[in-house]
Design a protein around this nucleic acid. Structure first.
Lengths: 235, 235
DNA sequence: GCAAAAGTGTTAATTATACACCCATGT
DNA sequence: ACATGGGTGTATAATTAACACTTTTGC
């Protein structure tokens, strides 16, 4: 026995929702699709799963192809499978979302072949297939997960300031936090190590840099932050 | 253009992790696999995705095939894709987990063809392929999700008592809760409607039945319960 | 010297935890 | 009358939320 015979096989692709943070807004990296159908239209970066690779491998390959980056935080989002989602031929897509330091990407970025651009979540162009739905779901999951796990650090450079971190959280949750409560909450996690130097671009006084304590970060990855806004419908 | 040509297609299956609660332990429904390879070994219920159905459709079909039940709570768990996970031929599997009232199943259960049996999570037999991993992940996700969303009601009959509900939560989290705090927390959600009749099997005094307030349940599905045990590693 | 952002402390409100007794009923 | 499980209240601790002033420094 070397196959399951008459069962129908199908194409499987991966698509990557690549998040970055520019200091102000949460952004997603999109490309201009390079082949038919929908050639030239905005799309997530994706690719077909190859015979020897897992979906995770495929997603990492696709991410590297676009950004040149490896060892990026990535997580499976959802398997999209509406039979008609691709008009040419049935293709399922396993969506992954990735969080990266947008500056890393800038440094790497020499590949114009994909015509990639960062878009704010509030200014998304029309996208092919079900990619808009994918991004909506990714954003939800990011919020959900970041409320409980300290993953947003993946969007910042190695050294960052508390005000930068707060702007990031505020961007992700589209809300404002009280800076006293915010820094107390963040620092109470004991995940951050204060540096001696300051970031002096965005203020005269300057803000101290912090770095992640990698040991504690890995150990405490399951810590809870609880940034989830409480629902007000529990009357 | 009617196909993507040279790209390799692959088999895609779905597997269902079907949870039930017998009043004491959280259980999973397993079958004896009916075809090669691994014929006769314990396995999750699964099936190949057909050309005209989404993964969700396939999972519902498979669930109905085994249990006869429809409109069951089901959620995509994860896409498993290790190229060699099935020794015969590459087959990816999209795992879904389902929560059902075990009594519904008993009532329905006339199909012996699958040799299905309920197993406690602590007494799982050896399973084919990566099915053990799937169940482990499903259990984690169930805990994770149930800490935040009131989904465990899906495992109980329409009418249930607070002590039954507490046993369920205790089973899922493998811990004990204080019954005063438990009932206060649950009732504070205002999702339950007290009935006039009592369940008299498990005690002389009898315990009042409750029903879900479906309206509030649907509206407040995103409420937070926070049964997650706090980690003690945040010193 | 003043504008702009960084940094820090206290109080009140809410929520979570710990804990013990009375109640109803079948035997 | 007693054993069994059901049901409830209160006091304390922990956490979260609200809020305002001082510091630094480049201009």
């Amino acid at each position: 026995m070397t196959s399951y015979g008459k069962q129908k096989r199908l194409l499987v692709a991966v698509d990557c929702i690549i998040f970055g943070f520019d200091g102000q807004d949460l952004k997603v990296l999109l490309i201009k699709r390079g082949f038919e159908p929908e050639k030239g239209n905005w799309s997530l970066m994706g690719g077909f799963v190859q015979p020897e690779e897992s979906f995770e491998d495929a997603a990492s390959r696709v991410l590297k192809q676009l950004t040149g980056l490896e060892d990026i935080y990535m997580e499976q989002l959802y398997a999209f499978s509406r039979p008609t989602r691709d008009p040419i031929e049935r293709t399922a897509s396993i969506a992954y979302f990735a969080l990266l330091d947008i500056n890393q990407y800038h440094r790497q970025q020499l590949r114009h072949e994909f015509h990639a651009e960062w878009f704010s979540l509030s200014q998304m162009p029309e996208l092919i297939f079900d990619h808009t739905e994918m991004i909506t779901m990714a954003k939800e999951k990011l919020r959900y997960k970041a409320a409980i796990h300290p993953i947003l650090f993946e969007l910042l450079p190695q050294k960052f300031t508390i005000p930068q971190l707060q702007l990031l959280y505020e961007g992700v949750y589209e809300t404002d936090f009280d800076k006293r409560n915010f820094s107390r909450k963040i620092l109470s996690l004991k995940l951050l190590v204060k540096q001696k130097d300051k970031e002096k671009e965005s203020s005269k006084r300057g803000a101290f840099y912090y770095k992640l304590d990698k040991r504690r970060y890995n150990a405490n990855f399951h810590s809870f932050l609880n940034f989830i806004a409480k629902p007000h419908n529990l009357k």
